[in-house]
């Protein structure tokens, strides 16, 4: 069964003369437990697809289904128990004056959990930070540690689908490896479904089962990771992207 199904999704910004059609007729399915990648040049509409799914891009048309049920314009609270997003920039995505404890505690409170203390402890362990980070503020954390906090926050409501927007692009490769291992472990242990945006084809190749190649708001091709690894893209643009990334 499909966890997520996107059909003929259009997303636009602005009105009339200033209208930008950022996503045009995007169609793809993501199976329960699958990890699905979105690749393409900057500005091709990858983030906008994720943002439209979570309701951060209000102007959209088409059909988006979660567990077979269509998503309306207004997302109920239960939606965010199922779907969470992790952003690229671990520096911008955490409030500078909120401690790790506050960030996680408030998120848990918002989602109606009672045993907040125990859950904060568990979340910190799950993302490999541990208790000594609990009362730190973002400026006391490295980029990788911040991204772990952002992942812990996303995990707090026990979601089933994680939307990951370039989660390691701002990190050193050594830290990227730690975060990608963490994400792989979490997916296995919690049977999570991922949609992951990256401009790095080798990251998507490592993390995903299938991927969509985007150009100018269109999905030009969907291929599986074996086709990616053996350079067997069929659309000329995906071929070009593959060749460019190999150098």
């Amino acid at each position: 069964m499909n966890k997520l199904s996107v059909n003929g999704l259009n997303v636009w910004f602005g009105k009339q003369r200033d209208r930008v059609n950022a996503v045009k007729g995007a169609t793809f399915d993501v199976a329960q437990g699958e990890s699905f990648g979105l690749v393409g040049e900057s500005g091709s509409g990858k983030s906008t697809i994720l943002r439209a799914i979570t309701g951060l891009a209000p102007n959209w048309s088409g059909k988006v289904e979660l567990d077979g049920r269509a998503i309306g314009k207004v997302r109920p609270k239960s939606f965010f128990k199922t779907v969470q997003m992790v952003f690229q920039d671990p520096y911008a995505s955490l409030h500078p004056r909120h401690s790790v404890d506050q960030v996680l505690g408030e998120t848990l409170h918002l989602h109606g959990f009672r045993d907040i203390d125990a859950r904060v402890v568990k979340l910190l362990d799950d993302v490999g930070l541990g208790q000594k980070f609990r009362f730190r503020y973002p400026h006391q954390l490295s980029g990788g540690q911040r991204q772990r906090v952002a992942i812990a926050r996303a995990l707090a409501p026990e979601p089933e689908l994680l939307l990951l927007d370039e989660p390691t692009s701002a990190l050193d490769v050594s830290v990227q490896a730690e975060i990608l291992n963490l994400l792989a472990d979490l997916r296995r242990d919690r049977d999570l479904t991922y949609v992951m945006v990256s401009h790095d084809l080798s990251v998507v190749g490592h993390m995903c089962d299938r991927l969509a190649v985007m150009k100018d708001g269109h999905i030009v091709e969907i291929l599986d990771v074996d086709a990616l690894r053996s350079m067997k893209a069929s659309h000329p643009y995906s071929k070009q992207l593959l060749e460019a990334s190999l150098g």
Partner: peptide
């Protein structure tokens, strides 16, 4: 070596990436 091995590679699939 640690930096190189922490990179995912399209031509060499691995379950886990090496951590420095």
């Amino acid at each position: 070596r640690g930096l190189l091995n922490s990179l995912p590679r399209l031509d060499v699939p691995r379950d886990r990436l090496d951590v420095l």
